[in-house]
Amino acid sequence: MSKLEDLLARKGALLADGATGTNLFDMGLVSGDAPELWNVEEPEKIKALHQSFVDAGADIILTNTFGCNRHRLKLHNAQDRVSELNIAAVRLAREVADCVDRDVLIGGSIGPTGELFQPLGALSYEDAVAAFREQMEALVEGGVDILWVETMSAVEEMKAAAEAAKGLDVPLVITASFDTAGKTMMGLAPKGLGDLQSQFACRPVAIGSNCGVGASDLLAAIMDITEAHPDAIVVAKANCGIPQIRGDEVVYTGTPDLMAKYTHIALDAGARIIGGCCGTSPVHLTAMREALDTHHAGRRPTLDEVITDIGPLVSPPNREADAARAEGDGAGRRRGRRRS
């Protein structure tokens, strides 16, 4: 049993941390700069962010390595520093986690490559596996407890990440962003993520959703996953409310009270690892910790209740288009059978 599974067995549900990027912007990071470079340029600020989440009660903190693969780093002429920056990130998180008298796990954050796969783009499946493997090996060398693949959209990219994780003997988590009419940008539905588990070269210990367009939309995705796959360990890591553009800034509308309500609903919806993504500060996470610790299990929520308590869906599923597509697929299959 991995450390993650052991801690889940002992505690029942775990609190993951909050946002990395939006909190680093508040600490002076400039838009367009690579936050991963701060692992060596501003290490005390990275440690301070981790410490703030641990102080708020996080059971899992994620490394500052979301874009720390060769393809994203080449935008900053740092593609040759993958190992250095990932190992540095883990060591900063480990210095914080090892100084508390409870178990805090380190998740190595692994985001998308930022490239389109062939034939839409230039990235081959093999190149994606190599890039993920390079980053994962550095994270494992640094000492992560979990390989935390997040904000995924394309099935091919998730499969490449899972293949890269094979044989590294560290539990894998995969979360997707269902931000386009209830699906990922590349058309994967929440239920489909659960269906993919058996197709991954390295089966994830946990699956779920992060980021997206709003907490209500993420909860809807989580409910779809847990309904179709009730035995799965499911992660819910929503943005702090709904992002709004105000001038040249993106502001997240979630209050600590709203994120506490989101935590209660996520637990009743079947999630077992709950955290916050963009806009989630240590103050929000403190409220979420209290909600998790005081939660009394209730009945499974309905989507109407989610909307009432958390807010409207920002990008609701297009049921008519899905039904028409399904009907078209069915007609094609029927025609195919007649031809045979």
Rank of each mutant, 00 (worst) to 15 (best):
G57H: 05
I46T: 02
T65E: 07
A260R: 05
A162S: 14
P204L: 07
P243G: 01
D322P: 00
I307P: 00
D169V: 03
A176V: 08
I233C: 10
E156A: 15
F25Q: 15
Q51M: 08
A297Q: 14
N64T: 00
P301R: 10
D231C: 01
D217K: 05
A19M: 08
L303C: 02
E290Y: 02
I233Y: 11
M152G: 01
K183N: 11
L313I: 06
L123S: 04
I106L: 08
Q197L: 13
S31C: 05
T151H: 01
N77C: 07
A236Y: 06
D33M: 08
S31W: 12
L105E: 07
F66T: 02
E141R: 10
L219T: 08
A228K: 12
T294W: 03
G167E: 01
L303T: 04
R72F: 02
A162R: 02
C68E: 03
D309M: 13
D257L: 10
F200V: 11
L8Y: 08
K74E: 11
D80Y: 05
S281C: 01
A323L: 14
E44K: 12
N86R: 04
D329Q: 14
V250P: 01
E305V: 04
A271S: 12
F53Q: 01
V173D: 07
P190I: 12
G330F: 12
R338C: 00
S83D: 15
G32F: 05
G18E: 09
E249S: 14
A58F: 09
R335F: 13
F200M: 15
T263A: 12
E134D: 13
D329W: 10
A238R: 00
H76D: 06
F25S: 04
P119W: 06
A201M: 09
A160W: 00
D322Q: 14
R133L: 03
P282S: 00
V173I: 15
L75Q: 12
Y252G: 06
R203F: 00
V205S: 12
F53D: 01
Q79A: 15
D304T: 12
D59N: 13
I274P: 04
L7F: 00
L313E: 08
S340D: 13
I233N: 12
G214K: 02
T263V: 03
G276A: 05
L62W: 10
A269T: 06
A19D: 03
T286L: 10
A164C: 03
E137S: 04
D293A: 15
F117W: 06
L292S: 00
D224H: 09
D304N: 12
E84H: 01
N210S: 04
G328Q: 15
I307N: 04
K47G: 00
A238K: 00
L196W: 12
A16M: 14
V173L: 09
N64Y: 05
D231Y: 01
I146Y: 03
L105F: 09
I87G: 09
L8C: 11
A206Y: 03
